[in-house]
């Protein structure tokens, strides 16, 4: 029985993670410049998180603030933030130097 519960919890957790991960990846794939993660973050993250928050809140209210539902959707919310964080941290490092490369290095 306990094994079944653990398996169910693991399955729900995995499914939640996959759904959130795919939804975030969709935003990057749909953007004009998927590699520019900061611009995707600026343009999409605010609306994404507001909509997600509204959905979580709606479910919490729908289930009459049931404790399990509150904990589940709180985890969904923080998991989303965590996935966004890992996505942003994995952004390729930009060239920190603003010095212009010489076009003709062999000129006297």
């Amino acid at each position: 029985m306990i094994a079944l519960i653990v398996f169910a919890l693991f399955f729900i957790g995995l499914m939640t993670f996959v759904i959130i991960r795919i939804s975030i990846s969709c935003l990057f794939w749909a953007s004009k410049n998927p590699k520019d993660k900061q611009s995707v973050f600026k343009a999409c993250f605010p609306y994404y998180i507001i909509i997600l928050f509204a959905i979580c809140l709606a479910f919490i209210i729908k289930f009459d603030k049931n404790e399990i539902v509150v904990y589940y959707f709180s985890i969904v919310y923080f998991l989303t933030l965590f996935i966004w964080r890992s996505e942003l941290k994995s952004s390729p490092k930009k060239n920190k130097s603003f010095a212009v490369e010489p076009n003709h290095p062999k000129l006297p």
């Binding site: 605010p46 998180i49 507001i50 966004w84 964080r85």
Partner: peptide
């Protein structure tokens, strides 16, 4: 609304 929901996160990852 955005500040209330994710202000802390945004500040830490703003560019």
């Amino acid at each position: 609304l955005y500040t209330t929901i994710a202000g802390f996160f945004h500040r830490n990852f703003s560019f």
